[in-house]
Nucleic acid binder design. Structure first.
Length: 560
RNA sequence: UGGCCCAUGGUGUAACUGGCAACACGUCUGAUUUUGGUUCAGAAGAGUCUAGGUUCGAGCCCUAGUGGGCCAACCA
C-alpha cells in the first residue's frame, strides 16, 4: 500500500506538530458547534467536513454541540434540521451535547470568579457600557460598579439568577482591562438576564451566558483538544484563553482554538440573516428551495452527499479570504452523478417530428442502455412510434456545417433508434414550426448490427414517443444572483443583484419508464443535464429539479 | 494617530526543518464516442503584493511599506 502523501492543510500541520511534541493521540477530540437558530448551509458543510473528516483521519471522537445560549433565537426545529443535515452528509457524532447542559457548571464557575475578584455585576444600561468601551484607538473607562464588593456582587448575581431583577438591569462582567488593545478584553459581559423560556431548559434559568464565556468552557468540559472556528473569531482567542485559565485544572486537556477562512461561493450569499430575508420576502419558496445554498436546498436540488464532501475536500482549508467559483461545486456534482445517475430521455422544449415512412399503427420497444459508465446498470425498453417529440433547438431548416443536428436534407441518429433524414417542415401563418417531417432508414436500427446501422452520422438526438410520453413539471434553475459577490458591495443592497430568471418552469415529456420515478431519485436526462424528483411530486404529477446541466461545449460555441 | 489576521496563474489550494513553483477547477487544442456528455492525449496561463535585509541559495526567515479582512451586540 503506497501512501500517496496528500498535502496537509495548516490545521493538520498543527495537529501533527502537537502529536510530534508528545500529545497523546487518544486525547484528540473535535467538535462541530452550531447555534440552533437556522438552517445549515454549504459554509457549515465545509466546517462539518473539516471537523468530522479530522475525526476519521485521526480516529478521534467528534461531538455535535449545540451552542444554545440565546433562547431568543433558538428552536428545537433547528436542532432537528441540523442533526438531519449532518447525518445526510454521512457523518456520525460521538456525543450530542448542548451548551445549556453546562449552565449549572458555568454558573458555579462564575460565582467562583466573583469570589476571586475576576468578575463583577455592572448595573448600568447597555448604552453606558458601550460608551465606556472606548474605540479601537481609544481606551475605555472603568465602570463605576467595577469595584463593588464581592458580597454585593454575589448578592446581585444571585438575584439575577433568581429572576428578581429586570432584563437589562444588571449584567455580570469579567474584570480584565478597559484599556486593552483588544476590545473584547475590555471587561466583556459574561451573563445577561433574559426572562425567556429556553427550548431545553424551559424557565429554569433567567441568566444566560454569553458566547465567549460559554464556548471555551464547553470545549473544556467536553475535553475537546482542538476547537476550530472561522476567522472572525481570531480576536476572541485571547479571551477564550483568559477564561480557560480561570477554571483550568492542571492535567486536564486544554482546548486549543484555531481559526480558518469561511467559505464564500460565487453568485450566492452565505449570511443566515440574508438567506432568511430571501425566504421572508418570498424570493425563494423556503429554506430548502433548490436555489438556496443551504444543505437542505442542495439536497433538494439533487446534490449528493458524496459530491458535497468531495467539494469540501477540494477547496481545502486555509486562512485566506476566498470566493470559490460555483463551477467547482457543479463539477463535483457532475463527477459523482455521471457515475451513478441512470440515463433517460426527456424532451423539455418539444417540437413534433413525424416519420412519414413509418407505419401509422406500428410501435417498437427498443433497447436502451441505463448507464454507459456502469456495466451493472443494465438495459431498459423505450417505445418508438411514428410521431415523436424532439427538442426544438435540435432542428434548423438550414444549418452550417458546425450544426450537427437535424436540418432539411441531412441525416441524424435518433438515440437508441434509427437514422432519419429531414424532409419538410409544416408551419403556421406566423412562420412557427408546427411539425417536422422526416423519413427513416428501416435498416439502421441501433444495435441491429446491419451495415446501415453502423453508418456514422454526425449528430444523435434524444426523443420521446408522443403517444407514450409521461408529462411532468420540470424546474430549471439558474444562479440566484447575477453578480459574483452579491453581498460584497458596500453601497448596493444584495437584493438588487437578484437574477430574475433563477427559476424557469416548463412542461416536459419523458419516456414512460419515468412514470415510476420516486422522490429524490436522480437521473440524467440525456444531453440536457442531471435532474431529480422533487418532493412536490404527486401521484401522476411528477416534478423534477434540474440539478446541473451537462457540460455543453456546443452552447459555448453558439454563444460566442 | 490602535491591535490582530491575511497576501502564490482567472479561481481555490500545495510546496515537510530555506534547494529549478505543483495539483484541481476553469480556458484552449486534438483523438475517441449512438449523449456536442464521459474518457484519453496535450497546450496556454503565476516567477509567489512592493522595497530592502539575512543566506551560496528566499514563496518560505527578518524589517518596512502597500492592499484586503476582522475588532467598539446584554448575537454567535
Amino acid at each position: 500500500m503506497s501512501e500517496e502523501k496528500k498535502p496537509l492543510n495548516f490545521i493538520e500541520h498543527i495537529i501533527n506538530e502537537d502529536l510530534k511534541a508528545g500529545y497523546d493521540p487518544a486525547k484528540l477530540k473535535f467538535r462541530f458547534p452550531p447555534e440552533p437558530n437556522g438552517y445549515l448551509h454549504i459554509g457549515h458543510a465545509k466546517s462539518i467536513c473539516l471537523n468530522f473528516g479530522l475525526g476519521e483521519q485521526y480516529n478521534a471522537p467528534v461531538n455535535l454541540r449545540f451552542d444554545d445560549t440565546n433562547p431568543i433565537k433558538e428552536e428545537q426545529e433547528f436542532v432537528d434540521a441540523i442533526k438531519r443535515d449532518i447525518k445526510w452528509l454521512g457523518f456520525e457524532w460521538a456525543e450530542e451535547c448542548y451548551a445549556s447542559d453546562y449552565f449549572q457548571q458555568l454558573y458555579e464557575w462564575a460565582v467562583q470568579m466573583i469570589k476571586d475578584g475576576d468578575a463583577y455585576v455592572d448595573s448600568q444600561p447597555s448604552s453606558a457600557i458601550a460608551e465606556q468601551k472606548g474605540t479601537p484607538t481609544r481606551p475605555g473607562t472603568n465602570s463605576p460598579y467595577r469595584s463593588r464588593s464581592v458580597e454585593e456582587n454575589l448578592m446581585l448575581f444571585e438575584k439575577m439568577k433568581n429572576g428578581e431583577t429586570r432584563e437589562g438591569e444588571h449584567v455580570l462582567r469579567a474584570k480584565i482591562d478597559m484599556a486593552h488593545t483588544n476590545m473584547l478584553m475590555r471587561d466583556p459581559v459574561m451573563y445577561r438576564v433574559l426572562h425567556k423560556s429556553h427550548h431545553r431548559t424551559g424557565n429554569k434559568w433567567m441568566i444566560y451566558p454569553m458566547y465567549d464565556w460559554a464556548h471555551g468552557e464547553s470545549d473544556y468540559i467536553e475535553a475537546v483538544s482542538h476547537s476550530f472556528c472561522t476567522l472572525e473569531f481570531v480576536m476572541h482567542r485571547e479571551l477564550y484563553e483568559w477564561f480557560l485559565e480561570k477554571v483550568y485544572t492542571q492535567g486536564d486537556v486544554k482546548p486549543k482554538q484555531r481559526e480558518f477562512a469561511r467559505l464564500n461561493l460565487s453568485y450566492t450569499i452565505m449570511s443566515k440573516r440574508k438567506l432568511a430575508e430571501l425566504v421572508r420576502q418570498k424570493v425563494v419558496s423556503s429554506w430548502d428551495d433548490p436555489r438556496m445554498p443551504t444543505i437542505s436546498g442542495l439536497r433538494r436540488r439533487g446534490y449528493t452527499p458524496a459530491s458535497i464532501r468531495r467539494f469540501a475536500e477540494t477547496i481545502g482549508v486555509a486562512k485566506r479570504e476566498n470566493i470559490i467559483d460555483v463551477s467547482l461545486l457543479e463539477f463535483c456534482a457532475r463527477e459523482d452523478l455521471n457515475k451513478t445517475a441512470p440515463r433517460v430521455m426527456a424532451v423539455l422544449d418539444p417540437v413534433k417530428l413525424v416519420i412519414t415512412n413509418y407505419p401509422e399503427d406500428q410501435e417498437e420497444w427498443l433497447e436502451a442502455e441505463n448507464n454507459p459508465e456502469d456495466d451493472s446498470a443494465g438495459f431498459r425498453k423505450v417505445p418508438f412510434s411514428r410521431e415523436l417529440y424532439i427538442e426544438r433547438e435540435d432542428f434548423k431548416e438550414s444549418a452550417n456545417r458546425k450544426f450537427f443536428r437535424l436540418s432539411l436534407g441531412k441525416e441524424v441518429r435518433l438515440k437508441n433508434a434509427y437514422i432519419i433524414k429531414g424532409e419538410d417542415v409544416v408551419k403556421d401563418e406566423a412562420g412557427n414550426i408546427l411539425e417536422i417531417h422526416c423519413t427513416y432508414d428501416p435498416n439502421s436500427r441501433s444495435g441491429s448490427g446491419t451495415p446501415e446501422s453502423q453508418r456514422k452520422v454526425k449528430g444523435t438526438l434524444h426523443w420521446v414517443s408522443i403517444k407514450h410520453a409521461v408529462e411532468a413539471e420540470v424546474r430549471l434553475y439558474d444562479r440566484l444572483f447575477e453578480v459574483e459577490a452579491p453581498d460584497g458591495d458596500k453601497d448596493q443592497d444584495f437584493m438588487s443583484f437578484l437574477n430574475p430568471n433563477s427559476l424557469e418552469v416548463v412542461r416536459g415529456y419523458l419516456e414512460p419508464s419515468m412514470a415510476e420515478a420516486k422522490e429524490f431519485e436522480q437521473y440524467q436526462f440525456q444531453r440536457l443535464g442531471y435532474f431529480n424528483v422533487d418532493p412536490d411530486s404527486k401521484e401522476g404529477a411528477l416534478v423534477f429539479n434540474r440539478t446541473v446541466t451537462l457540460r455543453d461545449s456546443w452552447a459555448k460555441m453558439a454563444n460566442s
